[in-house]
Design a binder for these strands. Structure first.
Length: 1123
RNA sequence: GCUCGAGUGGCGGAAUUGGUAGACGCGCUGGAUUCAAAAUCCAGUGUUUUAGGACGUGCGGGUUCGAUUCCCGCCUCGAGUACCA
């Protein structure tokens, strides 16, 4: 009389597991280790829906299977508990995010005032074999202490390219004091000044810090960032989807800000190489490969030619040259970063001649003038073109007068050495096709390029500045949406082709990105479509350097089968040969070299938010300094509001106690700030990926969590994650950053491994099946956009008729509609204007719909006030007022979400069918990696299976437990068992969980048919099923007389002998078409099979008197008769 | 546009060193049981048909005795990416 009371059974075993710590992993064990990890969740207030646990169930099945196989399994769980939603909520209500986060995890009263259970209870109910003793929460100070600690390790490191690893800053200081930075080959900021040892020693500490910062693996720099004004923070590239923020969908603009960055680019190559070592899905590897974006090519430097003088300039030069005024003047001479029109170095006098000048240009000129005056001590005088052309004499007199007054100095010639000048006024480009260098007909700079303002000629100044300004204003999204418009402006300047000496016009255009390569390109219109488009649009010549290729319509970008021509010393070479030769030539000339370029950018690490890890950094003389690690964690301060300050500082700017006292080594009140011992702390916090980049190591440690992030013993034993399951949305975020941190930690000897996750599986999303009720609206003949709302809902079939414009000739229906409209809002005159109907589909809560897609009208009416008097028209076009007619909803597969009312809660499923049913059904739905719709109706199948399984063990009187100890009669039961063992083991090893659920069903169907009750069969079966349905397995195992948990019982061993068959049901085909089957012994030879088949009466029948041309026999498989 | 993945009954899906297409489950149909319902059990269920068969794994070709599986060309859907020089 014992039925399958799943609720009792499940509660009982969940309690047993918790009490006995059944799944606690040991750090000291003789067993081989196995580490199964799920991507940990952000504990949102919305709780779990059935899509969330899919991956956890899969990993749990695997973890349990591994325990049966004798492994010491680490299968932990925790929470990525810093993050935006809690903070957004805090901003709205003032509740501390720590509080709401805790409620979301542990339960309590949630933000809407409802009692909620929390994540943990929901997870527990599904029967996972997690070792909860190792739980982590990234927002706990005990945890983020170590996130801060790792940050400081990065701060204390630089990347040595020669050794190809990270080293400590201390070692860098030693190198600087012994040999300066001349020989250092490091990944660092661009344009670092050169110094020798003695200079280094003489630098002030602040200066030293400034220099070191340019080498640190995490550094502070003014960078162009993605600023999201609505969220009030910067976002990383991977946090932006389609030009808007991933969370919230707010617009993002480019902005220059001082930010912490991570020098992930140092690891670009190793991150790429490491992909070969790990067993990850190919699409995921591909997206990392694309994100890193390695391309091989060369750099080339193009010299910028001095501008040709304007008419006015030429005229004035005529009067100044050759010491005509008694002093030596120079034309178009570089001073500091600028080229001035004329200069007398001896008198430090600069003369500028301008065209028509605009207001904004004046401001820029003022800036430039100020710089030249203040920094270099020059006097600047200005004339406009008209002055020079019309009143030359007055101009000369003015100049002479000033020359008289100015003191004389020494003409030291060039303001700075010639090669440095070339350096400053040359354009460096990166190209993947150096072989096409003779096809260059122009250059294009990104509008943001530094050189733009320096080289633009007076005539082009206005156009260029307008363009630059317009580009800066365009949001990222606009720029992305509009890639077809070709735009650009000529700067008026020219570059010199390094080999042909040709003059190449220099343009600016927004198709050249400031952030990639050098922000400048050599344009080869015959070989690059974008250059081709640009050249065509602006009528720039398109020289052809490919032999016998037509480039009049489009560029030829192929590399194969080309012969270079019109290219001087590269003529008649292939791509391969030409690339090699030109690279050598560039290197010999000293104007370029072969180079590998990466698309990957350094990762911005600052967020202007409250709910994240504080940086353990204070500022002294504007330089960041680390808080000594022994004083970590640096705890988040209390603030009265979670918004940015009125002056635009991040929320931490509101903290009143947020200064670091270097004497007391503690956080003190801001009022003690003295710039001597007490300094302000960093106001930014770390991004979401900080805590998740190393948490897998934290789980390894159980005992010494206060002393270390993870002990050496633990790290050595557990190594890395053997199996990691999670969503593919983390491809270029978490999964890339984690790999970066692990490689770094490995370099610094902190962890023994180079890759965090050996095998990774992406689980597919579980989609919801939304239900729709169809609301009827009338269309007005006079106003096409005006619709007459009704409160009438039509059933699915009726809706299809209306939508597909099929006339629905049913008077009742029309009368109902018109009658309703009349009574509700409008008069007859308007009804007459209604020319047709259309439908608005409304999401209805899936819980109001039964498995036959029938809407529960009563509940629906009560669900909202506005539906109270709704009229429903049935499938047959009749108003529903009794139970005879049905209202059928429409169904559509969509993402599962609250707003679509299609969320299915796992708690409800557990309540109604049990956790084992939920687990089995989630696995049964389809392949783990694939997206698939959830359909609650189908769950009865697996639930019925569990009932059937239960019954198999309860064949005694009144359905009592019964087991026979006598061996099974006949081989049937054992054959079924071993077939199932083989299949299930193979399936689990291949992560094909859906098919093993099928084989369980087949097994139970077969055993039930046989009325099998043999212990020899049913005992192993209980173990077999325990990874999938652990509660029922424990219960049966217990009833079978075991006092220990089934969880470590050895997995049944497959034995071939039970599967050996003596005969085979051969399919007999004629010309490839199967006609009948014939059972034959398996030990027959080919000839014997043939004669047996040919002798069969049906064979003759199908041959219809023909003689077979050929008989194909594959023993054990098939017979095919041709002819 | 580029990269990757996928197209099989009414639905979720199974089967690939090429060998009986549609396992298993849902749904549907009929039956048993029941006063009735639920639950349970039994049978049937790709399409079509003149009941022998014919057709059938997105479409069109090809290789083969035999193709869902291999090759070539297309179509559709989904995911990622966005001027990367």
């Amino acid at each position: 009389m014992s039925k399958y009371h799943f609720n009792e059974i499940e509660a009982k075993w969940q309690e047993y597991w918790a009490k006995n710590q059944t799944f606690k992993a040991e750090n000291l064990s003789d067993k081989p280790k196995y580490y199964v990890l799920d991507m940990f969740p952000y504990p949102s207030g919305a709780g779990l829906h059935v899509g969330h646990p899919l991956g956890y169930i899969a990993s749990d099945v695997y973890a349990r299977f591994k325990r049966h196989q004798g492994f010491n399994v680490l299968h932990p769980m925790g929470y990525d508990s810093f993050g935006l939603p809690a903070e957004q909520y805090a901003i709205q209500t003032g509740q501390h995010p720590a509080e709401t986060t805790k409620v979301n995890i542990e339960g309590g009263v949630d933000k809407n005032g409802n009692e909620i259970e929390g994540y943990r209870k929901q997870l527990d109910r599904i029967g996972f074999s997690f070792d909860w003793s190792r739980e982590v929460r990234t927002s706990n100070p005990e945890y983020y202490k170590w996130t801060q600690w790792i940050f400081l390790q990065l701060f204390d490191s630089w990347y040595d390219k020669d050794l190809d690893k990270a080293r400590s800053i201390e070692e860098l200081r030693i190198i600087f004091s012994s040999e300066g930075n001349v020989k250092i080959n490091a990944v660092c900021d661009e344009g670092i000044e050169r110094f020798i040892a003695s200079e280094w020693i003489d630098f002030s500490e602040t200066k030293k810090q400034e220099i070191l910062l340019k080498y640190r693996l995490t550094y502070l720099a003014e960078t162009e960032v993605n600023w999201c004004p609505q969220l009030g923070t910067v976002l990383a590239n991977d946090e932006i989807v389609n030009g808007v923020s991933e969370r919230g969908g707010y617009p993002v603009v480019r902005k220059k800000m001082k930010q912490w960055s991570m020098r992930i680019t140092a690891y670009a190559q190793r991150l790429l190489d490491g992909l070969n070592e790990i067993d990850w899905p190919q699409p995921l590897k591909d997206s990392q490969t694309n994100w890193i974006g390695r391309s091989k090519g060369a750099t080339v430097k193009f010299k910028v030619l001095p501008p040709t003088p304007t008419q006015a300039e030429a005229k004035l030069w005529g009067e100044l040259r050759g010491k005509k005024l008694g002093y030596k003047f120079r034309q178009q001479h570089p001073i500091d970063n600028y080229i001035v029109d004329f200069v007398c170095l001896e008198k430090k006098l600069i003369i500028e001649v301008d065209g028509e000048v605009h207001q904004y240009q004046l401001e820029k000129d003022d800036e430039r003038e100020l710089l030249l005056k203040e920094k270099k001590g020059y006097k600047v005088i200005r004339f406009n073109n008209l002055d020079v052309l019309n009143n030359l004499q007055t101009v000369i007199s003015k100049i002479e007068a000033i020359l008289q007054v100015l003191p004389s100095g020494e003409d030291l010639g060039w303001d700075f050495p010639k090669d440095e000048l070339d350096e400053k006024f040359s354009i460096e480009v990166f190209t993947t096709r150096p072989d096409t260098i003779f096809g260059v007909s122009f250059m294009v700079l990104a509008p943001e390029h530094d050189l733009v303002s320096k080289i633009t000629t007076a005539e082009q100044k206005e156009a260029v500045e307008n363009y630059v300004e317009a580009t800066a204003k365009r949001s990222e999204r606009e720029r992305m949406a509009d890639v077809k418009t070709i735009s650009g402006v000529f700067t008026g300047a020219y570059a010199e082709h390094p080999f042909s000496g040709e003059k190449l016009p220099i343009w600016i255009g927004d198709y050249v990105l400031a952030g990639y390569g050098t922000g400048a390109v050599m344009s080869v219109p015959c070989g690059d479509q974008r250059d081709h488009d640009f050249a065509k649009h602006f009528n720039i010549p398109i020289p052809n350097i490919f032999k016998d290729v037509d480039i009049s319509e489009e560029a030829y970008s192929g590399k194969e089968n080309i012969t270079i021509t019109n290219s001087d010393f590269l003529n008649d070479l292939t791509y391969q040969q030409a690339t090699e030769k030109i690279t050598t030539a560039l290197e010999e000339k000293g104007i370029g070299e072969g180079k590998i370029n990466y698309r990957l950018r350094d990762a911005v690490f600052s967020r202007q938010r409250y709910w994240g890890e504080p940086f353990p950094i204070y500022y002294k003389d504007g330089m960041p300094h680390a808080i000594p690690t022994e004083y970590l964690p640096l705890r988040l301060p209390e603030v009265e509001k979670y918004l940015p300050t009125e002056t635009g500082e991040p929320p931490l700017g509101r903290a009143t106690k947020w200064h670091w006292d270097t004497k007391k080594c503690s956080v003190v009140s801001n009022q003690f700030a003295d710039q001597e011992n007490v300094f302000p702390l960093e106001l930014n916090t770390m991004p979401g990926w900080a805590g998740s980049s190393w948490y897998f190591f934290r789980y390894m440690e159980s005992e010494k969590r206060d002393e270390v992030f993870a002990s050496k013993e633990a790290l050595d034993y557990w190594q890395n994650v053997d199996l990691y399951i999670g969503g593919s949305e983390h491809a270029t975020g978490h999964l890339l950053y984690s790999r970066f941190w692990v490689k770094f930690m490995h370099d610094r000897g902190l962890v023994p491994v180079e890759e965090p996750f050996k095998k990774l599986i992406n689980q597919g999303m579980i989609l919801g099946e939304s239900a729709f009720a169809y609301k009827l609206v009338g269309l007005n003949a006079n106003y096409p956009n005006f619709i007459h709302n009704t409160n009438i809902f039509v059933s699915k079939t009726l809706r299809n008729h209306i939508v597909h414009n099929k006339e629905w000739k049913n008077d009742d229906f029309l009368n109902i509609v018109k009658g309703n409209l009349k009574s509700r809002l409008i008069g007859q005159s308007i009804i007459d204007k209604i020319v047709g109907f259309t439908i608005i589909p409304l999401h209805v809560d899936v819980s109001l719909v039964d498995i036959h897609n029938e809407l529960n009208i009563k509940t629906f009416r009560n669900s909202r006030e506005e539906y109270k008097n709704a009229i429903f028209i049935s499938e047959n076009g009749i108003v529903i007022d009794n139970n005879n007619e049905k209202y059928i909803v429409g169904r559509e597969v969509e993402k599962m979400s609250k707003s679509k009312y299609n969320v299915v809660n796992p708690d409800d499923i557990c309540e109604q069918y049990g956790a084992d049913t939920l687990r089995l059904y989630e696995m049964f739905l389809g392949p783990l990696e694939q997206a698939k719709p959830w359909n609650t109706a189908g769950i009865t199948g697996v639930h019925g299976f569990l009932k059937k399984l239960w019954k198999l063990y309860h064949s005694g009187e009144n359905e009592s437990f019964y087991m026979s100890d006598t061996p099974p009669s006949g081989a049937g039961g054992l054959k079924t068992l071993h077939k199932t063992i083989k299949k299930v083991q193979e399936d689990i090893e291949e992560f094909s969980f859906n098919t093993s659920v099928s084989s369980f069903m087949i097994a139970v169907n077969e055993l039930s048919a046989e009325k099998c009750n043999a212990r020899e069969v049913l005992e192993p079966l209980a173990i077999l099923i325990s990874p999938y349905a652990p509660h029922i397995a424990e219960e049966l195992w217990n009833k079978l007389g075991h006092s220990e948990s089934v969880s470590t019982a050895p997995f049944p061993k497959f034995e071939e002998k039970y599967l050996v068959e003596s005969s085979k049901e051969y399919p007999i085909s004629f010309n490839g078409k199967m006609r009948f089957t014939l059972e034959l012994p398996l030990d027959l030879s080919k000839d014997e099979i043939e004669s047996a088949v040919m002798a069969h009466e049906k064979t003759a029948e199908y041959l219809e008197g023909r003689t077979p041309k050929k008989v194909i026999i594959v023993p054990g498989k098939i017979v095919n008769i041709v002819g």
